[in-house]
Amino acid sequence: MNLLTNYKLLDDTFKSLAEEVLINGEPQQCIVTTAYLGIDESRHISSLQAFKRGDYVQHKGQTYLITEEVKSTRHNKYRAKMTNCDHSFVVKDLIGRVEVGKDSLGKPIYENIYSDPYSIYGHMKQWDRSLNMSFQVGMMQVTYFIDVQNNTKNREQFAINNVYEIRGKTMKVALHELSNDGIIGLLFLQSGAKAPY
């Protein structure tokens, strides 16, 4: 018999065991435990308050992404697995363009103005390297698949064909995989284009 199915006992237990974490920047009382050993650091998170797949969790200086579906309680508490975000995109928002001068023909020269940089965290789910032999010289082809929170800002930021610097390589967004509520799976392919900043 699980004594923690009694809500009063569960509430008292949470008060004594829980620690404060930030879920999407908001403080929440949770119990965080180790999930299993593997290539990626994963942990279980339990709370009396609701959370959902795709939420960001700040815990002991690390950022995690909740990767499991959380729609209902299990034994009067919400519980899921969260995975450490092993990649952060340092991004800037385009504010506008300003004229900075004229060229030799009198045409205006413009420069893009960006916001202060901030980070968007993601979990690199898979990556792949292959040798492309269609050229005279073999070319290494690299692809990355990174999960980020599905929200309006991220959908705009990671529009198809936007270019980013990832682990020393210039990569462009090639695909959005939306089969999991709360998460955008981003497929990045190597690109010859230059990142905007």
Score class of each variant (00 low, 15 high):
Lys77Trp: 05
Lys102Ala: 02
Asp147Gln: 06
Asn112Gln: 10
Gly101Pro: 06
Ser46Gln: 09
Ser47Ile: 07
Ala159Glu: 11
Gln190Pro: 03
Phe14Ser: 07
Gly96His: 09
Tyr164Ile: 03
Arg167Gln: 15
Glu68Met: 12
Asn6His: 10
Glu41Met: 05
Met133Cys: 07
Asn2Lys: 03
Gly106Glu: 06
Lys15Ile: 10
Gln28Pro: 00
Ala80Cys: 05
Lys60Ile: 04
Val70Gln: 15
Thr13Trp: 13
Asp147Ser: 13
Ala193Pro: 01
Ser46Pro: 02
Asn6Glu: 15
Asp12Val: 01
Phe158Asp: 01
Thr73Trp: 00
Tyr121Ala: 01
Lys194Pro: 08
Cys85Gly: 07
Glu41Thr: 13
Leu37Ser: 11
Arg129Ile: 15
Val142Gly: 01
Lys15Glu: 15
Val70Met: 07
Asp116Met: 10
Glu68Tyr: 13
Met140Tyr: 02
Ser46His: 02
Asp181Ala: 14
Val90Phe: 01
Lys92Asn: 06
Asn2Cys: 08
Asn180Glu: 15
Ile45Arg: 00
Ser42Ile: 08
Gln126Leu: 12
Asn2Gly: 10
Tyr144Ala: 00
Ser88Asn: 06
Met1Cys: 08
Ser88Trp: 07
Ile183Asn: 03
Tyr121Phe: 13
Lys77Arg: 14
Lys77Asp: 04
Ile146Pro: 12
Thr83Asn: 02
Val163Pro: 09
Thr73Phe: 06
Gly122Ile: 07
Pro108Tyr: 06
Asn112Phe: 07
Trp127Met: 11
Gln141His: 15
Lys52His: 08
Leu4Pro: 02
Glu68Trp: 06
Glu165Pro: 03
Arg43Cys: 00
Thr83Leu: 01
Thr34Lys: 12
Asn162Gln: 10
Thr73Cys: 04
Gly168Phe: 10
Gln49Val: 13
Val142Thr: 14
Val173Leu: 14
Met139Ser: 09
Ile113Val: 15
Ser119Lys: 15
Ser72His: 14
Gly106Trp: 02
Pro117Val: 05
Arg97Gln: 09
Ala35Ile: 01
Thr63Val: 15
Gly61Phe: 11
Glu99Asn: 09
Ser72Cys: 10
Val90Ile: 04
Asp12Tyr: 10
Lys15Met: 12
Gly138Leu: 04
Asp55Phe: 03
Gln62Glu: 15
Phe188Ala: 11
Ser119Arg: 14
Ala195Gly: 11
Arg155Leu: 07
Asp93Thr: 09
Leu48Phe: 08
Leu22Thr: 01
Ser119Asn: 11
Asp11Arg: 13
Glu68Ile: 01
Asp11Gly: 01
Arg79Lys: 11
Lys169Glu: 11
Phe158Thr: 01
Val90His: 07
Thr73Ala: 11
Leu4Met: 13
Lys125Asn: 13
Glu41Trp: 01
